[in-house]
Computed example of a mutant assay.
Amino acid sequence: MPVAQARSERERPLRRPVAGRLGYRFAKRVFDVLFSLAVILLCFVPAAALCIAVRLESKGSPLYRQRRVGLGGRPVDVLKLRTMVADSDDVEKHLNPEQLDQWKRERKVDGDPRITKVGRLLRRTSLDELPQFLNVLAGQMSVIGPRPVVEEELAAYGDDAEELLSAKPGITGWWQVQARNDATYEDGSRQELELFYVRNASLAMDARVFLSTFGIMFGKGRTGR
Rank of each mutant, 00 (worst) to 15 (best):
E129A: 14
P113Y: 08
L134H: 10
L130P: 00
L137I: 00
R147D: 07
L121H: 14
E106R: 02
Q99V: 02
R114N: 00
G139H: 08
V150H: 02
D128Y: 09
I115A: 11
R105D: 12
R114S: 02
G139Y: 04
T125K: 08
V143S: 06
K108H: 11
G145M: 13
F133I: 09
A138V: 07
P131L: 15
K104Y: 12
K104T: 11
Q99R: 00
P131K: 12
D128I: 05
D101F: 07
L130A: 05
D110R: 15
P146Y: 07
R124P: 07
G139Q: 10
F133W: 11
S126F: 09
D110L: 12
D128A: 09
Q99C: 01
S142M: 11
I115F: 11
L100T: 03
V136S: 04
V109M: 04
R123T: 02
Q102H: 05
A138K: 14
A138Q: 13
N135M: 07
L122Q: 08
D101L: 10
S126Q: 13
T116E: 00
L137E: 01
L121M: 13
E129S: 15
I115P: 10
R107C: 15
R114K: 06
Q99E: 03
M141L: 10
R114V: 02
K108W: 11
P131I: 15
R107H: 13
L137S: 03
L122V: 09
G111D: 15
T116K: 00
R147F: 03
N135A: 06
I115V: 15
R123L: 06
T125Y: 10
L127C: 10
R107K: 12
R147L: 04
G139A: 08
S142C: 10
R124F: 07
T116C: 00
R114Y: 05
K108Q: 14
E129R: 15
F133E: 13
F133M: 14
D128R: 11
Q102K: 00
D101M: 09
